[in-house]
Design a protein around this nucleic acid. Structure first.
Length: 688
DNA sequence: GAGCACTGC
């Protein structure tokens, strides 16, 4: 979201203030010309015919074909939105849903939210007159919980299916089932609010590499190829394998800078630490160059970076300067940086995997896939001819995996399975996933859901707990915590806690200000642990804003909030997100009839509730000062970001176990070890 | 003594 705001603010600055009438007609003309020039424009008839003849169509089209903006308009014109029906288009990212919908509304010359709208979490612009609805795939999944046949849609388009996010994969399987059910019902009055249910058209849109996978999955579905429109990118490889890609990246950056024509450089690296170190190395190296060769401006971008600093990569470099943007994967698909003409690909990426046996996530540096390498190169050809430098030999490229392993095979499945159960799908092991997760991962997730009380002994959705948990947009273990907090009379505190635990990077410590950051945040810190610390961060900001709300406008409150966050070294984007989540889940639990009560100053009761909620993740200190995670028996360390890093209490509960350089536990609170047997007897009594 | 990237009626 932050990135989207940045992009549009840059665009706005460029816009010329012409007279409204003149600009409107010339803008209209420009849009018409642009639409006509798209590769897909000449395919309208053939495409519509293909949709009419095939219930499932796989559209393969590269960047710039116009498929995402044009196809829904073609479908509208061909009558697919008659009788109040909608065409739904899903995207893996909210920023895409939002910007594409705005673009299409502009092309249709209608205000956003009428014929064309978007729906993403916290932000729904659709109305009863919306016919082309852009949304995140997660949003459509949520809709399916309410209207299982998705009866308001005549056509559903899954865009960017090749990315294979968990949400996309679940949707691909679910829609296959919904389509079958809708054609079986055929015209009988059923579905949401007694709507007439007609057959569903399904369109899967993907980049080229793996169209076969989708065609096969849908029983030999027809595929339709649309030409892309990208500028040419020359690809270069190293002659020999590089032992140190950071060093190779540095050399390549300076080689481009001294030998190539003007144009900015985008360098793909693995993470924050590496990026910050390359940034310093570039600056260091520049000092040794002659004055006139120093005009190179290194800029970092990664998701944990505060928005104000992210924004800097979007601004044009000063006259005569060349930008070199040092980025994580964030620049691969999520954001597009203007001016990039050269790409440097390290060939590696940090990838998360989940080990269901240990209940542990791992963050490893691994080689990219061919598809990723190609996607990275493509970033050099957005505005004109470009060059891409891979820091490995061509023969190594051919050894890469074709595409990245689908996320569903690499993640904790408890949430996915809870959602499927809530959708009425009981046979998870037999469910028709496009790529099946391992039997073991499924069984482990079922067992976890059972322990959390979401499933009955025969693995059916428990009533009401399982239903309630499925309704909440949270990890099942956090939903469970809210249900328990209702009984412990600390629901208010737990709502804040799980909202804060649901967002990433609440604290941001720039390397050079690490000490200052810690000191200025000292007053938040609770000796009991991270959960109470988050609670006081949230509450202090809330009180601060409350005091100032009376005298200020909403925009000013936002500004005050950003200032407060900056002063306290808190990431304002993360905290705003946490506040949005809080509002949403508070609404959810109130709808469930929960009474949001506070335990006041009784933090003992709150900590007991944390222990009761997170009993599956407890750890005990050992003689040597390391910890043993009770569930997996893994030897772990307290992550240095925890406020308990130094104090090392005897027993803690934690929310995250992740292996990076070491096995670390994060987000912890001190508990009394006796509480575990008392509060989770079904799990601990026999052991201790 | 350290944090790839997304996302949720």
């Amino acid at each position: 979201m932050a990135q989207g705001e940045l992009k549009s603010s840059v665009l706005n600055r460029k816009r010329n203030p012409k007279s409204p009438v003149a600009s409107r007609s010339s803008k209209k003309q420009k849009i018409a010309e642009h639409r006509k020039s798209l590769p897909i424009a000449s395919e309208e008839e053939r495409l519509i015919e293909a949709v009419q003849k095939n219930d499932i169509l796989i559209i393969v089209g590269e960047t710039g074909s116009g498929k995402t903006t044009q196809l829904p308009q073609f479908l509208f014109n061909a009558g697919f939105c008659r009788e109040g029906k909608m065409v739904g288009i899903t995207q893996p990212r909210r920023i895409a849903a939002l910007t594409i919908a705005k673009r299409v509304a502009e092309e249709c010359d209608v205000p956003l939210g009428q014929k064309v709208g978007y729906s993403v979490r916290f932000d729904d612009t659709t109305s009863s007159s919306t016919r082309l609805k852009y949304m995140t795939d997660g949003f459509l999944l949520r809709e399916a919980l309410v209207d299982r046949l998705l009866s308001r849609y005549s056509v559903i388009i899954i865009d960017e299916a090749h990315e294979r996010t968990v949400h996309t994969d679940v949707l691909l399987a679910l829609l296959k089932k919904v389509q079958r059910e809708r054609s079986e019902i055929g015209g009988v009055l059923r579905g949401c609010q007694g709507r007439k249910v007609s057959p569903l058209k399904l369109i899967i849109m993907s980049a080229s590499l793996d169209a076969r996978v989708f065609c096969d999955y849908y029983g030999g579905a027809k595929d339709f190829h649309v030409e892309g429109r990208q500028f040419d990118v020359d690809i270069f490889y190293t002659v020999h394998p590089q032992t140190d890609y950071v060093d190779a990246a540095l050399n390549t950056i300076f080689q481009i800078h001294s030998e190539e024509e003007e144009g900015d450089i985008l360098v793909f690296l693995t993470g924050q630490e590496e990026i910050e170190s390359v940034e310093r190395l570039v600056q260091e190296k520049l000092k040794h160059l002659p004055e006139d060769e120093r005009k190179l401006l290194p800029l970092a971008i990664f998701s944990a970076l505060p928005s104000e600093q992210q924004m800097r990569v979007f601004a044009p470099a000063p006259i005569g300067f060349r930008k070199v943007v040092l980025a994580t994967n964030i620049a691969e698909t999520s954001i597009t940086i203007p001016g990039i003409r050269y790409v440097v690909d390290s060939g590696v990426v940090k990838a998360r995997t989940y080990d269901p046996n240990k209940g542990m996530e791992t963050l490893d540096v691994v080689p990219v896939s061919k598809a990723q390498a190609i996607q990275r190169s493509g970033r050099a050809g957005r505005e004109g001819y470009g060059k891409s430098f891979h820091l490995y030999p061509e023969r190594d490229f051919w050894k890469l995996e074709d595409s990245t392993k689908p996320e569903i095979k690499r993640c904790n499945l408890s949430n996915v399975i809870l959602q499927l159960k809530a959708l009425g799908i009981d046979d998870i092991l037999g469910f028709d996933f496009i790529d099946k997760p391992s039997r073991y991962a499924i069984v482990k997730a079922l067992a976890e859901l059972h322990l959390l009380g979401a499933l009955t002994d025969d693995c059916k959705l428990a009533k009401p707990a399982g239903e309630q948990m499925a309704r909440l947009p949270l990890e099942p273990v956090y939903s469970r915590a809210l249900i328990l907090a209702n009984q412990f009379n600390c629901l208010e505190e737990m709502l804040i806690t799980v909202a804060m635990l649901s967002v990433e990077s609440i604290f941001y410590d720039p390397r050079e200000k690490r000490e200052e950051a810690r000191t200025s945040r000292n007053h938040f810190v609770s000796v009991e642990g991270d959960h109470l610390t988050y609670l006081s961060v949230y509450r202090e900001l809330d009180e601060f804003l409350e005091e100032r709300k009376a005298e200020n406008s909403e925009a000013k409150v936002e500004k005050v909030m950003r200032k407060w966050c900056k002063d306290n070294f808190v990431n304002s984007r993360s905290l705003k997100h946490a506040r949005d989540i809080y509002r949403q889940i508070r609404g959810n639990v109130e709808e469930m009839g929960f009474n949001v009560s506070s335990c006041g100053n009784d933090m003992l009761e709150y900590r007991r509730c944390l222990a009761a909620s997170f009993f599956l993740k407890a750890a005990q200190r050992q003689m040597d000062g390391t910890y043993r995670a009770l569930e997996s028996s893994e030897i772990v360390l307290i992550h240095p970001s925890s406020v308990l890093f130094r104090s090392k209490p005897e027993c803690v509960i934690f929310n995250e176990l992740m292996q990076t350089s070491m096995k670390y536990i994060k987000n912890l609170t001190r508990i009394d070890p006796l509480w575990l047997a008392e509060l989770a007897p079904h799990h601990y009594k026999t052991e201790e």
